[in-house]
């Protein structure tokens, strides 16, 4: 499991970045194209995901953000007719090469979905299930507590751990889903518009949370909310019609975009 050091990052990927990336890259997308049957949804996209940083993917609706995100932990495998070209390497291992077990990939790269989707079971079981099927043999109580604390939900649910997760509010459910993903201690956490179904207060909760988690996890987040991307992410990828238009340090994207289209999109939403 060799680490990817900065000079390993292909020129094609980093040449547009305003300053050289100094972080270690965990995920490396190399000319990635994704098709639904014949329809191309993502076209020749290359960039890197830096370790312990937040990378956001922005762009207009239908531009392929979710498709790209799902390809990072092979959740696309469940959609019939999807095919992928190019290379996505995770710690120098191609995620789509023959010997790779997709189940193992998803264990290491967790995902939080747009709509909160807790299991219709107790809060406790929601967290404990993933670790238990993957052979966790430590103290489950501690793990549940730790995960809930990490997701800033512990204080609200500590007295009702055995109540149904469906009795929680939408924002609490989403934090539960984050806690559930964290309990697996994934290397990377993918989030697809995790706040789009939430009110501003719950959104703020989750943004704070992402900020906290950054020191220990690598996070990739798809968002429609420019402010959110600007606030929480270190790197930003802007996509349009399946293509990556610009990838750069977040600050650059929002203050000095190099591409006209990025500027239009970013300022259009701000103005």
């Amino acid at each position: 499991m060799s680490l990817l050091i900065p000079h390993d990052i292909p020129q094609a990927i980093t040449k547009h970045i305003s300053k050289p990336m100094t972080e270690e890259a965990v995920l490396n997308l190399n000319h990635v194209s994704i098709k639904y049957s014949d329809k191309t949804a993502v076209n020749d996209v290359s960039f890197v995901i830096a370790k312990h940083k937040v990378t956001s993917i922005i762009g207009p609706s239908g531009c392929g953000k979710s498709t790209l995100l799902r390809s990072l932990n092979r959740m696309n495998d469940f959609i019939p007719g999807v095919s992928i070209d190019g290379e996505i390497t995770f710690n120098n291992q191609d995620l789509y090469s023959k010997g790779v077990d997709a189940v193992e990939v998803r264990r290491r790269i967790g995902m939080v979905f747009q709509k909160p989707n807790p299991f219709p079971k107790s809060i406790y079981k929601n967290i404990a299930w993933g670790p238990s099927i993957n052979g966790f043999d430590g103290s489950m109580e501690e793990l549940v507590e730790r995960s809930l604390k990490q997701a800033a939900l512990w204080n609200e649910v500590k007295d009702r751990l055995h109540e149904s997760a469906l009795s929680l509010s939408g924002g609490q459910q989403q934090r539960l889903c984050i806690a559930r993903a964290l309990a697996m201690e994934p290397d990377i956490l993918l989030m697809d518009e995790p706040c789009s179904a939430l009110d501003p207060i719950s959104t703020a909760h989750i943004e704070d949370l992402i900020f906290e988690l950054k020191s220990r996890y690598t996070i990739v987040i798809v968002t429609h909310n420019m402010h959110q991307a600007a606030r929480i992410s270190d790197y930003t990828a802007f996509m349009e019609m399946g293509e990556l238009i610009e990838f750069d340090v977040t600050n650059e994207i929002f203050t000095r975009p190099k591409q006209k289209r990025t500027e239009e999109y970013v300022t259009g939403r701000f103005g």
Binding site: F78, V103, R106, G110, N117, F119, G130, I133, A181
Partner: peptide
């Protein structure tokens, strides 16, 4: 059974 439940499980590394 809603698809989202299956996806939640798969995303946790379940078979």
């Amino acid at each position: 059974v809603p698809m989202s439940i299956r996806h939640a499980a798969f995303a946790l590394g379940a078979t």
